[in-house]
Design a protein around this nucleic acid. Structure first.
Lengths: 203, 203
DNA sequence: GACCTTACGTATCGAGCGGTATGGAAACCC
DNA sequence: GGGTTTCCATACCGCTCGATACGTAAGGTC
């Protein structure tokens, strides 16, 4: 759709790197949430002026979705990788440890962008909420397929319901992110993960 | 502090019931969050004018805290009652079922006011966040005391860490509220609870 | 050089926010 | 009924929000 550039660049080239600016924007959204991040916050962190932002990213909602894409690609890569673990327990362990690592190491903001953005706020953010919820639903669907395969492969006792296990594991991880965003200590989060893994059924 | 009323009522009495108005305000905060609820939303739902609101409740932050008190008293009564269950499993079951009932029955808004309000938003809501987080911390502390007693009474296998179990159970319930707020079906939430109870250690 | 296209910087838009000043109306006291 | 106290209603405050108009600067093409 946007591949045909017969004359590659025309006019004055922009003076900033859109990718770097998007990284900065992601950090702001991650810290303050969609509505809490004002355009002034964003332009300041991105080091560009307001019209430049609108020219490069459309509007606030469009900018957020691009930041969300970046977030899923860079920060949530461990989720896709976790599904390739050989057993359901391995999947759960990789998901939990991945979330734990993200919340306890590195200089990224605490909490999960998805969790922050999926809690209801003003009506203008409603479309953001449905977007985030939809993405999570697709992620949960992939996890469900993986657990159904695991069940067929005998990873669980018979009485275990894969769908229940998906919402269960999702809930634990969401709770972990929430607690991390609210200032929980590293030890508390580690013992949360340890406890969860200690209770995990099957192999 | 405000008990000494030698001359009981003076001047024109107010024309609305403060308690009913607070119930309406709680509902608005519960649905839209602290920042998402505008003063216009609140006054409309409460059926009073803006100056009446300020005269009766101070300001928005003060109104929210009063609504939060009401919420804990009326909607979170099951939490205190749950701690009186005879075993740790009973405590967990009552907490989970209480949360599930609240999210699936009745006409109240979905999601948990505490969870909604503890996710970071604008800087003006930061004091609200710390308030909510502090209340949750005290609730978790009570749960920890209960689980330590339970451990002394032999409700758990030896390898179980009560503190880890507290953050674990909190996470599950927070995740449940989050999913409920995001439109999860009743069956999904029920299977979440069922799965959690199926994995619960000890008695 | 002239010309075209695009980005930048300033200054601003209309709307909505939380919070109030002000004047009149309603109930109590004496 | 006068005086006092409090409540209600309208209209408004300063401020910030997301989003833009407009003039200027910078690079590429010919």
């Amino acid at each position: 759709m946007e591949t045909l550039d017969k004359s590659p660049i025309r006019g004055r080239p922009r003076e900033f790197c859109a990718e770097e600016a998007l990284v900065a924007a992601l950090r702001v959204f991650w810290t303050k949430g969609y509505e809490g991040a004002s355009m002034s916050d964003l332009t300041e962190a991105m080091g560009i002026t307001r019209p430049s932002l609108y020219a490069a990213f459309g509007n606030k909602e469009s900018l957020f979705k691009k930041a969300l894409d970046l977030y899923e690609r860079d920060k949530l890569a461990y989720v896709g990788a976790a599904l390739e673990a050989p057993t359901a327990r391995g999947v759960a362990e990789r998901l939990l440890r991945g979330a734990l690592d993200m919340q306890t190491t590195g200089s990224d903001p605490k909490g999960c962008l998805g969790v922050i953005s999926s809690t209801a706020c003003g009506s203008e953010a409603e479309c953001i909420r449905v977007e985030v919820v939809a993405r999570r639903a697709s992620s949960d669907a992939a996890l469900l397929r993986r657990f159904e395969r695991a069940k067929a492969e005998g990873d669980f006792p018979d009485h275990i319901d894969p769908a229940g296990l998906v919402s269960y594991l999702s809930a634990v991880i969401q709770g972990l992110c929430l607690q991390a965003g609210n200032g929980a200590s590293t030890e508390a989060l580690e013992s949360l993960v340890k406890t969860t893994l200690g209770l995990w059924p099957g192999r």
